[in-house]
């Protein structure tokens, strides 16, 4: 029987991996994918805890997280297309027009 701790540890590892990815990558789409990875690690802990506590609430939450992720994917990718159209680039280092 796999304990809840092991699931949570795995979730933590994946979340940290996602964080590192967000912080070190330049490509906006890869950053986006790393964010998806973080979301999924959270989903895993939600479902693990839901199973552990014998309640449906966590799974419902995961359902909503998926809906939000879908919306985010639609809008985020549209933003990237627009940005690419204007700057011929998808790297976050080029998104610097707001600085002083």
């Amino acid at each position: 029987m796999v304990s809840i701790h092991e699931y949570l540890m795995l979730s933590a590892i994946l979340f940290s991996l996602g964080t590192v990815g967000v912080l070190i990558r330049r490509n906006a789409i890869v950053i986006f994918m790393c964010i998806e990875l973080m979301l999924n690690s959270v989903n895993l802990s939600f479902i693990a805890l839901s199973h552990h506590l014998g309640s449906m609430d966590g799974q419902i939450f995961v359902f909503f997280v998926m809906a939000v992720a879908a919306a985010e994917a639609a809008v985020g990718l549209a933003l990237m297309i627009t940005f690419y159209r204007n700057r011929e680039s998808i790297e976050v280092d080029d998104i610097n027009m707001l600085k002083w």
Binding site: I4, H5, L8, M9, A12, I13, F15, S16, L17, T19, V20, V22, L23, I24, L49, H52, L53, G54, S55, M56, D57
Partner: peptide, 27 residues
């Protein structure tokens, strides 16, 4: 910097998870 942050985060969450048992309303 990113790696340090990631390790810090991992360390924190490990510490948090291993500190106790998840409790709450059992369904």
């Amino acid at each position: 910097g990113g790696s340090i942050m990631g390790v810090l985060m991992l360390f924190l969450v490990f510490f948090f998870v291993n500190r106790g048992e998840p409790t709450g309303m059992r369904g």
